[in-house]
Design a protein around this nucleic acid. Structure first.
Length: 467
RNA sequence: GGCGCGGUAGCCAAGUGGUAAGGCCAGGGUCUGCAAAACCCUUAUUCGUCGGUUCGAUUCCGACCCGCGCCUCCA
């Protein structure tokens, strides 16, 4: 199946065709680095990662830009409150964000763009918008006049016609002339950071940052612009207005939006206080990053996903099942031969897997295909119908799975026994067991368990894994 | 009020105009010195409610009920 996505702009699932064959110019809205990101935020960042992977699976080369908003009201407020410079304050959370992304195995975009490093370009864009009559000034701030952009509302499918027609344009007013008008440039305030630019002193509004950096790096028309659904209005709507007023060209061909992570049926958010950071979950609560990644990836991105500790444990168990399967494939002894039914099942699973991913990233269906294969193959192994010639093919199914989901490799524990030491203890226990010294063998088993190592006695011998 | 999303088993969650994927939990079993682990099996006559179209609807249409989100910053 050719790759296809649901496009918020057209409200339809459409085949994905980049402007330039084989290359995808993509812009995704990144974090505002005023605090640690919570896992609701990371649902969207995981979505970007999956999006990148599915595009590459389709042979497309990526040119992906993600912004880091390192200047905004909250950042300024917090930095001032802590007596820190803007840079000191934002560097801390930028690094934390990047570390968290690495923990969740998120691929790095080709480019990360920090807003404060592109202020002159923003000023130039605003000047051009002023020259073409899309703006007005008020108290040193510059506002975008949405009545000058007829397409306003086309992304969020809001009809602002009546409002715009009825708006009285009062050039001399110091207020916004229309409730929907938004700030491109904010006047400097005492005690707050500001930049001297060709349009005067001040700092950029949030929306202009994305439009300008996207155009700067990727050109007037993007293939994909993505973000969370809460950004559709007003952020992305405003981005379109600015960018298209500036270039006269469509800003993005495909708009992709991920749904929220919910807690007890409500949006996870800082303001509601119902959030967990990655550090909360992986630190004191002891959850594995892979489980979080799996959970966030397991439901299709356009469906809101209810987060519970149960679902997180459930994700961890599901990963265990896959790891056990892999371990069994690698360690069990099989008779010579090859079962073509298993070969066919593997091919079918992989086919269904990719088919589902190409269908607007249907990760739930993709997972189902893999688990079905796992069950079929386990049964074959139980019945002695799985042979050495099947091993490689079955492992390849898992490799395909993991090149996308990326959860099979356990995150290395800090400290812990080295492999060689574990092997030694296992051998010691096996010897004790053979001598029917069960007290001793049980003691070694318990010791290893305490160190987070689980032993499994199988008919082909003992194997171990880390918890 | 406008716009958008959703209501499928105990929980999470796919899906199709032809009779309900998958994961977790639970129960049962295989294996085992005992365990643990692992593996297997079982678990929705039913898809928010009521109408309509149809040979047939969970799937299409209409109405209604409920939940959530955006409309101010927000992934």
């Amino acid at each position: 199946m050719p790759l296809r996505f649901y496009n918020t702009l057209t409200q339809q699932v459409q085949p994905f065709v980049p402007v330039e064959p084989n290359v995808v110019r993509m812009y995704t809205c990144g974090p505002t680095v005023y605090d640690y990101a919570h896992i609701g935020n990371f649902r969207t960042f995981v979505f970007y990662d999956l999006l990148r992977r599915v595009l590459r699976l389709n042979g497309l080369k990526l040119d992906h830009v993600m912004n880091i908003t390192d200047v905004d009201d909250k950042i300024i407020r917090n930095a001032v409150a802590q007596g820190k410079s803007l840079a000191d304050y934002t560097n801390l959370y930028t690094q934390a964000f990047l570390d968290d992304c690495a923990t969740l195995r998120l691929e790095r975009p080709e480019r990360l763009a920090r807003a404060t490093e592109h202020i002159p370009e923003m000023a130039t864009a605003i000047r051009k918008l002023e020259e073409s009559g899309h703006t007005y000034r008020s108290d040193g701030s510059v506002y975008f006049r949405i009545s000058t952009f007829p397409g306003y509302g086309k992304l969020s499918h809001n009809d602002f016609e009546g409002m715009v027609a009825g708006a009285r344009v009062d050039v001399d007013s110091y207020d916004k002339t229309d409730a929907r008008d938004f700030a491109l440039w904010k006047a400097p305030k005492p005690g707050e950071p500001s930049w001297d630019t060709e349009i005067g002193s001040g700092r950029p509004g949030w929306h202009i940052e994305c439009s300008v950096m996207a155009i700067e790096f990727l050109g007037a028309t993007l293939d994909i612009h993505a973000g969370g659904v809460d950004l559709i209005f007003p952020h992305h709507e405003n981005e379109i207005a600015q960018a298209e007023a500036l270039t006269g060209k469509p800003f993005a061909n495909y708009w992709l939006h991920s749904e929220f992570l919910l807690v007890d049926g409500q949006k996870m958010s800082k303001s509601l206080g119902n959030f967990y950071t990655l550090r909360d979950l992986c630190g004191e609560l002891g959850h594995a990053p892979e489980a979080i990644r799996y959970l966030l990836a397991s439901a299709p991105y356009r469906k809101s996903l209810n987060f519970t500790m149960d679902s997180l444990r459930s994700a961890a168990t599901a990963i265990d099942r896959l790891r056990n399967f892999k371990l069994r494939l690698e360690s069990a002894k099989f008779d010579d031969g090859r079962n073509t039914k298993i070969v066919d099942a593997g091919e079918e699973a992989v086919r269904t897997f990719y088919h589902a991913l190409n269908d607007d990233l249907n990760t739930a269906e993709a997972l189902a295909a893999i688990f079905e294969f796992v069950r079929e193959t386990n049964i074959a192994m139980d019945e002695g119908q799985f042979f050495s010639g099947n091993r490689e093919g079955a492992l390849n199914v898992l490799r395909d799975f993991d090149s996308f989901f990326d959860v099979l490799k356990p995150t290395a524990p800090a400290g812990g026994l080295p492999d060689a030491e574990i092997d030694r203890l296992v051998a010691e226990r096996t010897a004790a067991k053979k001598a029917r010294d069960f007290a001793r063998s049980d003691r070694i088993r318990a010791e290893l368990l305490e160190q987070g190592v689980i032993l499994e006695d199988t008919k082909d011998g003992v194997r171990w894994k880390r918890k």
